[in-house]
Design a protein around this nucleic acid. Structure first.
Lengths: 196, 196
DNA sequence: ACAATGATACAGACCTGTCTCTACCATCGC
DNA sequence: GCGATGGTAGAGACAGGTCTGTATCATTGT
């Protein structure tokens, strides 16, 4: 047995993540997930209380991957918050033009499940607030005149990039994001000198 | 019969529009639509070939309302494209903070129906391209140094505002949109004087 | 009379979640 | 060494509900 076979849970999460992201959550039934991952139905329901529960696990996994990406990009410019901001948007602009890009998984989930009591929505809102906080922190350390305002602007841009890449493909959305972010960052930091 | 009763078609379109927008399209079945609009099921299927067909009619109606809004706002500043742009974003910023706001119907539809062959997607893409064209036209007439670039930035902001208002409610998204739009418009038009 | 509509039952597909039965495999007692 | 045991997992049937779309019949307004 040379090959280590992954656990049922891992295979389910991997397959479900792929299908949910590509085709949408409501569009993918549990039967499809178990067929595609070669797993028994009971293995799914032993590991996840319900489909909603699986959706939450999917979002958590995506969140981890997201912060992994964020930290990796930021680490390329240690102690240079302004460069980190720009690098994040430059990387984002490349990502949204990839052929596999299907929008932001969090936004997509929030759109698919409109009921405010759906457990997934809390995760989505938590994620977006965390992003906002990290943007504000970077804006502040980058010396923005009004960090809160810059963080708000940049997050708008980020969300716009996510949906723009999906509905307006091949219109140069990626390039737009990077240049708009640059413009806003420079404008926000211009009026304040570093350590005057 | 003092009250003019609307035709079955009108009542269906009205109810479906309301439900689709508030709760999502996949979340609302035709049974709910007919119950809520007090219409027979066959009246629905006599007026619309299928649910997908009803969805398309819904998108067309939203599109008409959207351009009605756009033209009304623009008409408040005749022959002043820059003021029109700003006014559009100011109005948008108010709209997304209304309690009934549930995001952009076009984006929501595109997220709910990921299949590229779904008839609704063509309408969505057509709408977004039309918006882009009108933005570019205004940017050009407003004297932007690079109208294409400004139109791209503004559309990103617009899309961001739509989803931001939905997932990040009560974080001052509306104010952010207006101020970010102002900043980008001013920056884009600064380098070019009007009739020098 | 006639066209549009309401009411209702129904077909067939699909969805989530449960249940049973079987197979494998590691660990433990002896 | 070796059989018993228990945990994990595959296969498939099934229940109960919902969805779209169709068919049939009664009603209403002009």
């Amino acid at each position: 047995m040379g090959e280590e076979r992954k656990s049922a849970r891992e295979r389910i999460l991997e397959t479900a993540g792929d299908l949910f992201y590509r085709e949408g959550i409501r569009a993918v039934g549990v039967d499809t997930i178990i067929a595609r991952s070669g797993v028994a139905k009971m293995s799914l329901y032993r590991n996840f209380a319900s489909k909603d529960d699986l959706v939450c696990a999917y979002l958590e996994a995506i969140g981890q991957a997201f912060w992994g990406w964020w930290d990796k990009v930021a680490a390329r410019h240690p102690d240079d918050p302004k460069a980190q901001l720009k690098a994040l948007f430059a990387s984002l602009s490349r990502w949204i033009e990839s052929p596999n890009f299907r929008g932001c998984p969090f936004i997509n989930t929030a759109v698919e499940f409109r009921d405010p009591d759906h457990p997934g929505r809390a995760i989505v809102i938590g994620h977006k607030q965390a992003v906002r906080a990290r943007l504000r922190d970077l804006a502040e350390r980058a010396g923005a005149a009004d960090p809160n305002r810059l963080a708000g602007h940049l997050q708008l841009l980020m969300e716009g990039a996510y949906v723009g890449g999906q509905t307006l493909a091949s219109e140069g959305t990626g390039e737009s994001v990077a240049s708009a972010a640059d413009a806003l960052i420079e404008a926000a930091c211009a009026s304040k000198r570093e350590s005057p």
